[in-house]
Amino acid sequence: MSLPKFDYQAPQTLDEAVLLLSKAKKDAKVIAGGTDLVVAMKQRRITPALVVNIKGIKGLEYIKNGKGELRIGALTPLSSIEESELIREKFPALAKAAGAVGAPQHRNAGTIGGNICLNTRCWYYNQSPFFRKCRPVCYKFGSDKDKCQLFPTREGKANVCYSVFSGDTAPALIALGAKIKIKGPEGEKTIPLTELYTGDGKRPIALAPADIVTEVTVPSPPENSSSAYMKYRVREAIDFPLLGVAVSIALDAGSGTCKNASVVLGAVASRPVEVTEAEKILKGKKITEDLIEQVGEAAFKAAKPLANLLECSPQYRKRLAKVFTKRAIKSALEIIKSA
């Protein structure tokens, strides 16, 4: 499969890149690692007129620790995050999630900025032109007149795209309370990572056409805290997640009660799903087997997978959300205990 033709620019500075994108408006795409975009272009899902390669911009590839937060440049390869001693020790969920993305080749090329801006996936969407030509046009690919192929007969209701957000690092980063820095034509802004996701499968990432994610910042974890990430997929490598669970827990040093808890599910909706119940259940209490069971139940209720990833049934993924949440909490608690 060859790529569709496009114009190519490789700006040397961020300002130049933003200018190029804002001039080109809708038809331009940013490329860094290219592991997501190149496949989409080969399958003719995305056919931009202009591709702007931001890999040449200096000073966006770093992992820095200081002032109570960890700063990661958007162009940092996932393999550097996976291998960083600092991240492995202090942010185990992030290291685990970065190491769970695709294959080693994907992690060497793919960047953290690209992984959080990953396009959503669906069995009806991520297909070759030939496959799509044999079927009605899917809503994510087509216009408002086209039906979501998951519910092709549903009449009288507004069209909704149910494609799945399949990034690994985003749930882990949200559980750790990450923020991202975005550079756009109007200047720089910092938003919590969770605001990057619209929840709408057709347009999952809330970035304007000329916006570029430049940095991810994660607050340093307090004493007596830890995090964990668990991913389910059919093969142990290459595959996208069928379920991802990120957990971060902080305990009170003296009493051992839970100070903070956050559970985030990946690959069960068009955005990472925060299980808000989890914090209510655990906060201020000593974590017991019974409470972990309750959090698992809350994760089960929050997970709403559909039959658009075909490797296993949505029922199985929903039930697995409970099991993985419980296991992730236990593994985070174990790390705190052993420290």
Partner: peptide, 13 residues
């Protein structure tokens, strides 16, 4: 020095 997929890398890059 890093293993990558050449089918996903643009020659320009």
């Amino acid at each position: 020095g890093r293993a990558v997929h050449s089918c996903l890398t643009l020659a320009m890059d």
